[in-house]
Computed example of a mutant assay.
Amino acid sequence: MIRPVTPDDTAALIALAKDTISFEPNELEELGKMFADYFNGNSDDICITDEDNGLVGVAYCTPERMTNGTWNLLLIAVHPNYQGQGRGSALLRYVEQTLTGRGERLLLVETSGLPSFERTRAFYRKCGYDEEARIRDFYDVGNDKIVYHKMLTVQGM
C-alpha cells in the first residue's frame, strides 16, 4: 500500500535508508532534517512509503530551486527482502503521476557510478530515465555522480 509518510514513520524510514542504501551517519542526520522539514510543512516535497506489515519502501523528491517544474528524486529505497517485486517501480510511477498531475515537467535523479550501483542504474533505465550527465570523482576519487532525467509532460502543453 503506497501512502504519504507520517511523523511516526521517521525512525523506520531512517532505518530503511541505513539498511538499504548504507547511508553514512552524516547522511542519515541530513535525512532526518529533511523529514523534519517535511513534517513541519516547510517544503513542497513529496514523500511516500510502501507498507506491507511495516515500511518496506520510500520515495522522497523535492522541487529544484530556481527552475520551472524541475524536481529531484533524492531518495528511493526498497528493503532487500521486497526488491524485485515491482515495488520500486510502483513508488517511482506514483511520484511521476503526482508530479504530472501538478503540471511539473522534469524529474532528475542522481546516483553513483560505482560498479556496485549498476543495478540501481539499470532500474532507472528500465523506468524510462536517460543518462544526462556524469561528473567525474564527485562523491570521491573514482566515484562519479551520474544524473538521469525523465520528461514528465510534453513541452508546450
Rank of each mutant, 00 (worst) to 15 (best):
W71Y: 11
S22K: 12
E132A: 14
D50Y: 15
D9L: 06
Y129I: 09
Q83V: 04
R121V: 02
E29N: 13
N42D: 14
S116H: 01
V5H: 10
K18Q: 14
Y60C: 03
F138Y: 15
Y82L: 01
W71M: 09
Y124D: 09
R102D: 05
A15H: 00
K33N: 13
E118N: 09
N26D: 15
R65N: 03
D130I: 13
R136W: 03
D37W: 05
L55E: 08
G113P: 02
T98Y: 08
R65E: 06
E64Q: 11
M66T: 08
P4I: 07
D8L: 12
V56A: 04
N26G: 01
E104R: 02
C47L: 09
L28P: 09
Y38F: 15
E30R: 10
T67V: 03
D9G: 10
F35V: 05
R102M: 14
I14H: 00
T100N: 08
C47N: 10
E96Y: 10
M34R: 14
T20K: 03
A133P: 03
Y129C: 12
S116R: 14
L91Y: 09
Y60S: 04
T20P: 07
N68F: 10
A133E: 12
R3P: 06
R102V: 00
T70F: 05
W71D: 06
W71H: 06
A36W: 00
G69W: 05
W71V: 04
Y38G: 07
T10C: 11
M66S: 13
G32L: 06
D9S: 08
V58S: 03
Y94I: 00
E51K: 12
D130H: 11
E29A: 15
E110I: 01
V5K: 04
F39C: 06
Y94W: 10
